[in-house]
Structures are given as C-alpha cells and as structure tokens.
Design a protein around this nucleic acid. Structure first.
Length: 564
RNA sequence: CGCGGGGUAGAGCAGUCCGGUAGCUUGCCAGGCUCAUAACCUGAAGGUCGGAGGUUCAAAUCCUCCCCCCGCAACCA
C-alpha cells in the first residue's frame, strides 16, 4: 500500500478562519486522513499557516505589531481552533519557517539552473504616503467604463470589466485613501510557464474523469488560454529575501513559497525527530507516495498549474499531486463568508455554540462538492436533530435502556442466529462496501448518506424484532437481539469515527470498548460478535442534544443570517 | 460573443460521461409500534428534469440556440 500524503490548502494567517475554510479543505482532509489511518495506511497529514504577503504586513501595521509577532499571534489562534475541531494534523507548521526558506531556495535555484527564471521590468503602483508598493486590488478609483467610483485596480465590481490600476480615474490607495499615486518601474523575476505548458497539458489530460470535474476543467481552462510568465517576486519586506544580486529589497511572492510550504512544513515535522523521520521519504519518493490535496476552487489554478510547474521545472522528481479534491464554496445568507466583513460563522463562535462533531457531521453531509452550498441554521438544526439525535443517538439510547431494564447493565448472552440476523449482516455488508467505496473515492456527501443508512438499519432491526415483546416470551432470544444491537453500536462507532471522532469514542466507552479505531474489512457478522456477553457497560447520557426552535431563531438573529 | 460550475417534487440533493418506466433526504398525509430523546419502522401522494428547436423507435442524458444563479479572470489570498 502506498504512503498517504495528505495536504490541506494552507489557510492565510491574517484573521480568523470560518466554516468555509473548514469545509473547503481542512475538514475533508482530516476525515480522509482519519479514514486512511483506520485502514492501516501510513499517513502524513500536514498543513499550516500561509504567512507572507501584503495582507500580513498591512494587518500587522493596523494592530501596531511587527509582522513576525503578528503572524505568531494568529498562527497560535489558528492552532487552537483547529485543535477544538479535532483536526488530526501530523504537523501544523508555518510557511515562514526556516525549513520552508531552505526548500524554497533549493527549488528556486533548481528552476534557475534549468533556465526557467527570467528578469523583467514591470510597472507597479507606488504609494509614497503608505510607503509601499500597492497590489492592484489595493488601488481604488472610478471605473472608466461605467463610472463606478469604488472600482479596484484589477477589476470593476460593478461592471465586471478587467482593469489595470492605470485605467482608473482618480486612483487612490485603499489603505490610506491618499491619491498621491506613482507608477514606478521595478524589476521582477518570472517563472517561464510557457516552456512547461506542453508537459503540463499532457499530465492534466490523464486526470480527466479521475479528478472532480471542477479541478480538471479549471486546469484545462488555464491551459486553453495559454500560460503566461508568472511573477514570483514582490516589492515587500515580509517574506523570503530573493537570493540574487539586484533584488536586495524584494521577497518571493506569497504564492511562490506558500505551496512549497507543504514541503517546508514536512521538513519542520521531520526536524523534530531527525533520527526517525525524513521529509524526502514523502517528497522525493514519488512512486511510493499517493498525494491527495484538498482545497477550495479558488486555489485550483495554483495547484494544477503553477505549483506542479514549479516542482517539475527543477527536474528533481518531486512527489506530485495524485488526487486533487477541489471543493466549491459554502455560502452564508446568499453570499460568501467574509473575513474582512466578519460575515458568517467563525470557528471560535461555532465551537462556543455546539460540539465539534455537530459541525463536522453537518459540513461533511452537506459538503459543497458539486455546487456552492448554503449554510443555514434551519438545515444545521434539521440534520443535527434528525440524523444525530433521532436516528443515531436514539438508537443507542433505546438499546441501552432496554438492555438495562431487562438484563441489568451487562451484555446478555447470545443464542442461535436467525434469518433476521443473517439479513441484517447481509445488508450491512452491502452498505459498508458502498460506504468504503465512497470514502476511497472522496465522495463525502454520498459517504455520509450511506453512513446514515447504516444507522437507520439499526433502528430497522430493532423495530422488526420488537425485543420489548420478545423478552416476555423468549428471554434468551431477546438477549440475542440486544447483544446484536450492542455490537451494532460498536460497528457504528468504527464507521462514524472519521467524521465524528469524539462521538465515536463515547460510543465505544458506553459498551466498554477501548477507543481504538479499525476499519471493518471483514464480513459484518464478525463485528456483530465482538462485544462479549457478561461485560458490564455504563448507561450514559444521550449522545446528542436537540436544538430547539427558539434557539434556531435566536442564532439566525445573532449571526445575521436573515440579513439581505 | 472571456472562462468554468450549476438550474431535476415545497426545500436540499443524486442520476447526465455510457439514451431505455425519474431516485434519495426532508416536509406533508396515512398506517404500525409504544423499548427509546413526542423518538423509531412501513406505505402513499407530490416532478411537462430552466426554455425553444433538433437527432432517435426512445432524450434529464446527445446536438444547436437562448434565459437565470454562482464563482473565477493570473499583483487579495
């Protein structure tokens, strides 16, 4: 079995992450990593904060901090929130690390050696009052096409026309508002993507029908339009210095070193235990590694075109992405979640309202895989109340209570199996095979739908067997039914663990099982005979609590869901 | 004519590659059950598949044109 290298797009350090970030890459990567570990695969799941670039510099200035301290502060906040959601990173690093600098330089020199780096003089907007060069979108002015007075230097939001900052009438800095704007000539380094276009195209073509449509089509779109040379340096202070004469005041562009961060962060991980970990085992070992990347659709061009080109251009044989899981957006109240406007639900708030597993299950069951998806509290409460409380939680509760009432708090002995049990085993075999197939294929919505069906099959079994009646006439057979049901709890825990790790551990604890998770690969009958008769268990509180209607309405108001 | 994704019961989605009686969840209605968190199980009703045209014995599916929603457009990340 190949080693499973799993990466989630690196969240930008500036500001706090929201549910969109969680569902777009972090959470599906975590669910997949947990699934692969449960299957016994050797997994390395890395992520970290993306720290360079203008927004960090500007954000630090706003808070009156130096950039390094600012990034550290937000890095630590990210770490705390992800811990709250039980994201099981093997390492959560930083793109500003020394290790990432080392790898970035190595890759840069490799590209240089192969003649893929070129110098070009470009025109950039400079704001003397801000004392910095401005990215195009940091310049605001009146659109020459439609007269909209808040058009940005890259595009007019009103008429959607693509602009250059120099097109704007009365241009001014978004930061200071100053209209004292200069156009300065400045020299930058470019990666020659056209030279790699052919081989990228051939490579992407092999992903047709393999990767999600959205990943393949976005990559194809860029190739179809023809690749252009791409700037990889910027006139900033915060970032990795460019190791070339004449570039002393410049740094690498954040999009150059951010994806390299996957490798740099792996080296951070390896450097913690150099005697037993080697980053090269993962990144210089392409044949033995399957690399799965998770990201929102906005990141797809960088992970299908520029980053693969960056790695290939060195001719060093880096591990390339094997499967790219591109996700659409999670919307809130009909629009995007927004960091800058603080619109939507942020992770700290989410955890303060409900346990992590409620969110994890809703987000995976409604993952924006083929469409943009709306988050609404109505939908959230419906899924939590129905799937988690009524179907799964109530199943466990009724089985435990019935057993305690009739046999005391210990697992009753099992008599001979009947056709009813055989049918249950067979239907579970089919369902588990489907579930496994969808998890392997990273089709999370479908996987969650089958998981729910699996839970339903437990209720179905109980309803058909009517152990509350059977116990009055055939106590031994009632014991068989209930012990089967108790074993179902164990099986459900194993199958639910990738998406709801805390809940799964609680389910196992109820029936006295240790919290070790192993994926069921044998026939269901084996798993329904695992909890021994006579073992005592602890009757617990219900696993979940319902969200009452008043609470839903209050949440809608509090988080401004109904706002137009 | 910039590019991509989407439009399928009231709501949320699958099915489209490879044409063959349109499926799932929820909601609504009815029945069963009364162990359980007023929960569970079963059944029924509900759709001219965004619109128009074409190909075909047959179109949600293939082709052409049009409409609507969302995203992207390389210096925000």
């Amino acid at each position: 079995m190949k080693k499973q290298l799993i990466t989630s797009a690196l969240p930008y350090v500036n500001g706090l992450p929201h549910l969109g970030h969680l569902v777009g890459c972090l959470l599906p990567a975590d669910v997949y990593a947990r699934y692969q570990r449960q299957r016994g695969a050797e997994v390395l799941f890395v992520c970290g904060t993306d720290e360079h670039g203008t927004p960090s510099e500007v954000g630090a200035a706003k808070e009156g901090m130096d950039v390094e301290a600012y990034c550290k502060k937000y890095h630590d906040l990210h770490v705390a929130m992800y811990a709250g959601f039980n994201l099981s990173f093997d390492y959560f690093g930083r793109t500003s690390s020394d290790q990432n600098k080392e790898i970035t330089y190595r890759i840069f020199h490799g590209l240089e050696a192969n003649g893929l780096i070129e110098e070009k003089v470009t025109q950039q907007v400079y704001s003397p009052d801000d004392n910095r060069y401005l990215p195009d979108s940091y310049v605001m002015g009146t659109c020459p096409h439609c007269g909209y007075d808040k058009a940005k230097g890259d595009q007019c939001e009103n008429c959607t026309k693509v602009l250059d900052p120099t097109d704007l009438i009365n241009p001014r800095s978004v930061l200071s508002g100053s209209s004292n704007i200069e156009i300065r000539e400045t020299k930058h380094l470019f990666l020659n993507l056209p030279k790699l276009e052919k081989e990228l195209e051939q490579w992407i073509e092999t992903k047709k029908g393999v990767w999600p449509d959205i990943a393949y089509s976005i990559a194809k779109k860029w190739l179809k339009e023809g690749l252009r040379e791409r700037g990889i340096t910027r006139d900033l202070k915060w970032g990795f210095a460019v190791p070339r004469a004449g570039f002393e005041n410049k740094v690498f562009y954040v999009w150059f070193d951010a994806p390299i961060g996957y490798i740099g962060i792996t080296k951070q991980w390896a450097d913690e235990r150099p005697d037993e970990r080697r980053w090269e085992d993962w990144w210089m070992n392409a044949d033995a590694v399957r690399h799965t990347e998770f990201m929102g659709k906005d990141n797809i061009p960088y992970h299908t075109i520029t980053f693969p080109a960056t790695l290939r251009g060195t001719r060093e044989g880096w591990t390339e992405v094997s499967f790219l899981k591109g996700m659409n957006y999670l919307n809130f109240a009909g629009g995007k979640f927004s960091k800058s406007a603080h619109r939507g639900i942020f992770l700290d708030d989410a955890l303060a309202e409900f346990p992590a597993d409620y969110w994890r299950y809703w987000l995976m069951a409604n993952a924006p895989e083929s469409n943009d998806t709306n988050f609404t509290f109505d939908s959230f409460a419906m899924i939590v109340n129905k799937d988690l409380n009524d179907v799964l939680g109530n199943f466990i509760n009724r089985v435990i209570k019935m057993t305690v009432a009739n046999f005391g708090a210990e697992v009753p002995p099992t008599g001979p199996m009947t056709d009813a049990e055989r049918e249950l085993y067979q239907s579970l075999d089919t369902l588990i095979a489907d579930y496994t197939k969808y998890m392997d294929g990273l089709e999370f919505r479908k996987a969650m739908s089958v998981l729910r069906e699996i839970w339903v099959s437990g209720n179905n079994y109980i309803a058909r067997m009517e152990p509350w009646k059977v116990v009055k006439t055939d106590r031994a057979y009632a014991g068989t039914i209930l012990r089967t049901a108790l074993n179902l709890i164990r099986l459900f825990a194993q199958l639910s663990a990738p998406v709801m790790p805390e809940t799964a551990a609680r389910m196992l604890a109820i029936i006295g099982e240790p919290a070790t998770f192993v994926w069921p690969t044998e026939k269901a009958a084996v798993y329904l005979d695992g909890v021994p008769a006579g073992r005592s268990f602890t009757a617990a509180e219900p696993l979940f609590q319902k969200i009452p209607a008043e609470r839903i309405e209050a949440l809608k108001v509090q988080y401004k869901e109904t706002e137009a």
